[in-house]
């Protein structure tokens, strides 16, 4: 555990240094350039792009979490139980839509820029969270749910005091999956002019500059690993707190 934390802290420090003072890394990225190409992205601030990238991802994931969890709660209540089988099928079908297609098709309605990216990330982020919340709510330890009913809790008490807290780690696993997918997918948003780190990569692709592609990809990759690991750590802590053995998440 310990060496793992140190490696991650170092990765975070290096990432931060790179974002604040990218020129320090010029010798490294310079090795990848040809014919006097710039080694460090020069069409905007990497820090701004990163923050914008993160803001889009978090906004989309936050909205997706709210909606997906509410929907999952709805279809597991008596009122919405008729929607449960269908919603599972829809979540399954939804995953067959490639993010690029969702993105491109959002453009005619929303125009170019950040908006279609937000919508695409939101729609794409719904699925893992919805599926995991369903799994969490449906696969509660049977005795617990029965006991909660048996002692006469109302449905609201059962939901907020028993079901959601117990399902929380599984839900969080869905949020983690969704966030990491969104971090990568947001780069594609730059093809419809969203201001994300995809700009750096695409600039590299169009000018045949590997240094740009690498720095764009590395920033996103390191961010993804760090966020993934922190959320996983949070889950483990919650698991331990609710005394559950690690249950299978999606």
């Amino acid at each position: 555990m310990r060496p793992g934390i140190i490696v991650r802290l170092i990765a975070f420090a290096v990432l931060l240094t790179f974002l604040i003072a990218p020129d320090l890394f010029e010798p490294f990225f310079g090795m990848l350039t040809k014919n006097g190409q710039p080694a460090i992205y020069n069409q905007g601030s990497l820090l701004d792009l990163t923050l914008n990238h993160l803001a889009i991802v978090f906004a989309a994931t936050f909205a997706a979490t709210l909606i997906a969890v509410s929907l999952a709660i709805l279809v597991t209540r008596p009122f919405g139980v008729e929607f449960l089988p269908l919603s599972r099928s829809l979540a399954n079908i939804g995953q067959t839509f490639p993010p690029v297609a969702v993105l491109a098709l959002a453009v005619p309605v929303l125009g170019f820029g950040t908006a279609p990216t937000l919508v695409a990330l939101f729609l794409y982020g719904l699925l893992p969270i919805f599926e995991n919340t369903l799994t969490g709510l449906v696969n509660l330890p049977g005795t617990v749910a029965e006991a909660a009913k048996g002692v006469g809790m109302t449905w609201a008490q059962r939901l907020f005091k028993i079901e959601l807290p117990l399902a929380l780690p599984v839900i969080l696993a869905g949020v983690r999956l969704s966030t990491v997918i969104s971090l990568a997918t947001a780069t594609i948003g730059s093809t419809v002019a969203a201001r994300t780190l995809g700009e750096v990569i695409i600039a590299g692709l169009t000018s045949n500059n590997t240094a740009f592609v690498l720095q764009g990809g590395l920033i996103v990759g390191v961010l993804a690993v760090l966020i993934y690991d922190s959320l996983a750590a949070l889950e483990r802590w919650l698991m331990a707190r609710t005394g559950q053995a690690k249950r299978a998440a999606a």
């Binding site: 990569i201 045949n208 592609v213 990809g217 996103v220 993804a224």
Partner: peptide, 17 residues
């Protein structure tokens, strides 16, 4: 797992060189 976190456009691009 780490390979999966690299955004697809970047991975495509990085393999060019």
């Amino acid at each position: 797992n780490i390979v999966q976190t690299i955004p697809s456009i970047a991975l495509f691009g990085l393999l060019i060189a």
